[in-house]
Computed example of a mutant assay.
Amino acid sequence: MSLVKALLLQATTTAFLCLICSPTEAADWDAIEVPVSAGDGYTWKLHPVSDDFNYEAPPTDKPAEFTRRWKDSFINPWLGPGKTEFNPGHSYVKDGHLGIHASRKPGTDKVYTGAISSKETFVYPLFVEAKVKLNGLVLASAVWMLSGDSTQEIDIVEAYGSQRPTEGWAAKRLHLSHHVFIRKPFQDYQPTDPGSWYNDGTNWQQDFHRVGVYWRAPWHLEYYVDGKLVRTVSGESRIDPLGYTDGTGLSKPMHLIIDSEDQDWRSDEGITPTDEELADTTKSIMWVDWIRVYQLVKQDAAD
């Protein structure tokens, strides 16, 4: 065999082996369509922050697969509301899921919880969806977005999965909401209409569910549960009726955040986890199967 033929054969064989040994990996959500139409001339472009958590990341010393997307902390030094204390050792990736763990801070009434936040920020038009199993505590299981100055917030998942007999109302509801704030002096607007507490009879802690938000524009939000449109909040009178955004609406770049929280509006009423509940890992972990983020772009820009 000539040298030229030998080299061609070797190159062909190598290319074939690379092809069969390095298949394109499918993301967990590939078979699930985005439930929002992109519209004529546009398409949904997947952002690389999207994460199916198909790798291992211990509570500390997380790998590049995690750290290229996420900080193992909140977006700033704040440690969380109420009795919460965000702790970097309380988030990890295992068996294809992100775990956000809660435990008692020794010798105190505080609760250690995990919190991760995206290194990048995002603006509309944007679709964000997460597949989540709530923790079984009175804590909030949360996937949300927040501007860098903490004045604009979109809640994707905010829910309370405790199965205590006294918590049946909360266990059957997802809080689908947003906030606009003035920080000094502190003022907070969020919708209080009945639709902000979505209820179709499901006990949300019993299984994984998909919850998504289409942030279409500064004055328009759509909420999707398991692919179904369940709530629309549109117009200045529903997004910012008190004018806290000076007429700009939900317009600031926002970080993604995944955490659990012992919120003061509940703990002030005595609704806080017991030591026994926190020690029970069947209750104390919020699980995220995946989170995906799509930006709406012109068709020719995605090619």
Rank of each mutant, 00 (worst) to 15 (best):
V36T: 11
D95C: 03
E153L: 00
K110V: 07
T282K: 15
P218F: 04
Q10N: 06
L9I: 14
Y214N: 10
P218M: 07
H255T: 02
I154T: 00
A279V: 05
H220K: 06
D300W: 10
D30N: 12
P58V: 01
H255G: 01
W169T: 09
V4I: 15
W144K: 04
H255Q: 05
P81N: 09
G249K: 00
I257F: 00
R292S: 04
D52R: 11
A130D: 10
I258S: 01
S147L: 02
W197H: 14
P241V: 15
K5T: 13
K62C: 06
P194D: 04
I285P: 02
H209V: 09
E120N: 11
V123Q: 14
S147C: 03
H220V: 02
A102L: 07
L19G: 09
Q263P: 01
I32C: 09
P194I: 03
K71M: 12
E158K: 03
S141Y: 03
L9P: 04
P48H: 07
K110I: 06
L126I: 11
V4T: 13
D40W: 08
S118C: 00
D28V: 15
E277S: 04
A140W: 11
A279L: 03
T14I: 13
E85K: 10
K119S: 06
Y112N: 12
R173C: 02
K133L: 12
H220Q: 03
R69C: 05
Y223S: 10
Y198D: 03
G39R: 11
E158Y: 01
D109T: 15
Y55C: 08
T13D: 12
P191D: 12
E65G: 08
L17T: 14
W290H: 10
H220Y: 02
D28H: 09
S50K: 12
H47C: 06
D109P: 08
E129A: 15
W290P: 02
